[in-house]
């Protein structure tokens, strides 16, 4: 069944290839953010913005191929949803990068911020592994569980981090707001990736 839907038609192959590219772009953007946190080089932030633009192109390609009739109609909504979630995650990374241009992360929070960013990247890698498993038509329950494990760890880390954020003094309202927004975006990424994993499971179920 999987082979029929995923390998026989040119349009289906194209969509799957572009979805993989979309995920790779997300991983690349996450790695850029980790590199920025490690060294403070703002060129990585510009690269994230570029990657997001590239992601938009990929997203449009996928949608137009779906419009041309790739996949059976009942599968399209969840494929579309998956693509939208990945796109939203890339948008979120871009917003985070923009915020980092004018806020400075307090040194006492930097270590935990970096750890969350690294876990986010690992989580995206796990989603790619899950996606490959899905395309191969194998059972992806274990992969999706691994994605959820990462999400839980990030949540736990954020809980501790949040208690310390409240004790950080800021220069003015906008610095405080920027910092608050930044940390919200930092953890929202893992929620979105977890959602993408769940949609992948749904797609897998639809085909079995």
């Amino acid at each position: 069944m999987f082979k029929r839907f995923f390998y026989s038609e040119k349009n289906e192959q194209l969509v799957l290839k572009e979805m993989r590219t979309h995920l790779e772009l997300l991983e690349q953007a996450c790695r850029c953010f980790v590199d920025f946190l490690k060294g403070g080089d703002k060129r990585f932030l510009e690269e994230i913005v570029e990657i997001e633009r590239e992601g938009d192109i990929v997203r449009r390609n996928i949608l137009s191929t779906l419009y041309k009739g790739a996949f059976l109609p009942y599968l399209r909504p969840n494929i579309y949803r998956f693509v939208e979630i990945i796109d939203e995650t890339l948008d979120l990374l871009k917003d985070k990068a923009r915020l980092c241009e004018f806020i400075s992360i307090p040194p006492i929070l930097l270590d935990d911020t970096l750890q969350i960013a690294v876990l986010n990247t690992e989580m995206v890698r796990m989603l790619i592994i899950a996606f490959d498993t899905f395309v191969a038509g194998d059972d992806l329950r274990e992969r999706v569980l691994a994605v959820r494990i990462y999400e839980k760890r990030i949540d736990d880390l954020y809980h501790d981090l949040f208690l310390r954020i409240t004790k950080v003094s800021v220069e003015d309202f906008w610095q405080g707001r920027g910092l608050g927004d930044f940390f919200s975006l930092l953890v929202k990424l893992s929620d979105l990736v977890e959602d993408a994993g769940d949609v992948l499971s749904l797609l897998h179920l639809s085909l079995s």
Partner: peptide, 8 residues
Amino acid sequence: YASLIERV
């Protein structure tokens, strides 16, 4: 958790 991730 680590064992599961390693397996995957």
